[in-house]
Computed example of a mutant assay.
Amino acid sequence: MQKANPIGVFDSGYGGLTVLKEIVQRLPEYDYLYLGDNARAPYGNRSFDTVYQYTLQCVEWFFEQGCSLVILACNTASAKALRTIQQNDLPEIAPDKRVLGVIRPTTEVIGSFSETNSIGVLATNGTVASNSYPVEIAKFFPELNVFQEACPMWVPLIENNEHQSPGADFFIKKNLREIFQKGKDIDTILLACTHYPLLKDKISEYLPAGVKLISQGEIVANSLADYLERHPEIEKLCSKNGERSFYTTDSPDDFDNHATVFFGEAVRSQHMNLETDCR
């Protein structure tokens, strides 16, 4: 009988911790293993093939740790790597394991928030270039108008602890102005990057009255709970001791200092060596 092991949660860096935070609140009984590929972050401006190769390498590491279920808590990895991994790699390397992303759960519900049938998507260059959100949203809400805006400065601002600075205000106002120029009837804004919830209060200051601001963490957490209920064959392979482990491909000290801000509590991580541990 296969041993139960943690649910894997992957991100290129820190942003996935905002998703893990919501997942832990929703499903605290499970064990979680988090990996941030900080040594190769950010993924947002990298090519599709590079993101795919990096993501697959780390997914295989999760499988080596015994994880039967891995969540790509990263929009760029979900956009550029998930489909290929699900369709081409899993049948060959791990047909009994599952890899899920953050885009599908979000696109299944995002249309229910809008009354004008116009939403804005704020994301990294990579996620916008992939066109994943308009394509996936159209499957569930074909009547919805989707306007995208890349916000390339937001992640660096957050990771350099400048997200409360006047510089952050400048870029937030700039990107919001540009997306509302594209769609004047937008009444819902989706933060399609897991870093962006750290800017939520500041973004709210500059939104027009009545515009809803949606982040993904709670949506993904609820979707995961539903998935586990519908797939008992996977759920029984997920261990339940309420434990959380954190790994980074870069400096654990640096990771821990930043991760606390994203996760909302102290984090103690370990280093994962890409050359020896992640093949």
Rank of each mutant, 00 (worst) to 15 (best):
R26M: 08
Q86I: 02
E60R: 11
A4M: 07
E22K: 13
L20F: 01
T188C: 01
Y43F: 13
E29P: 01
F263D: 00
E108I: 02
L27I: 15
F141H: 03
V261L: 09
E22S: 13
I186Q: 07
D169P: 05
R40H: 10
A192F: 10
D250G: 14
E233H: 13
A138E: 14
E64S: 12
S245N: 08
Y227E: 08
E265P: 00
L207H: 06
G36E: 07
Y52K: 12
F263Q: 00
N88F: 10
E235T: 13
F246Q: 01
A81C: 10
G15P: 04
G66A: 10
K240A: 14
E136Y: 11
S132C: 12
L69F: 07
E265K: 05
W154V: 03
Y32R: 02
Y43I: 04
V109A: 09
C151A: 15
R104M: 09
T249G: 09
R83F: 08
D201C: 11
C278K: 06
G15I: 06
L190E: 07
C278M: 14
S132H: 06
S130V: 06
Q164V: 06
E29Y: 03
D11H: 03
L122W: 11
G15H: 02
T18Y: 01
R268Y: 04
E92Y: 14
A221W: 01
H195E: 05
R104E: 14
T106A: 12
I189E: 01
K21P: 00
V135P: 08
E265H: 02
V102S: 06
L33P: 06
Y247M: 10
L274Q: 12
E218K: 15
L190D: 07
H271E: 07
I158H: 04
E162I: 02
D256R: 03
N131L: 10
Q164N: 13
L122E: 12
I203D: 02
C74Y: 04
Q164T: 14
F180K: 05
L82F: 11
L100D: 09
F141V: 00
D187W: 03
L144N: 02
L199W: 00
I179F: 10
L17T: 02
Q25W: 00
T76L: 05
C58D: 12
C278D: 04
G242H: 12
E149Q: 15
H271F: 08
V9Q: 02
L198S: 03
G44I: 08
N160G: 13
P6H: 04
A123K: 13
C67G: 08
K80Q: 11
E92W: 12
P6M: 03
Q86L: 02
R268P: 00
Y43C: 01
N175R: 11
A41S: 06
I103Y: 05
F263Y: 14
N45P: 04
F141K: 00
R268Q: 07
T55G: 07
A138T: 11
T116Q: 00
Y34C: 02
G264E: 03
N160I: 05
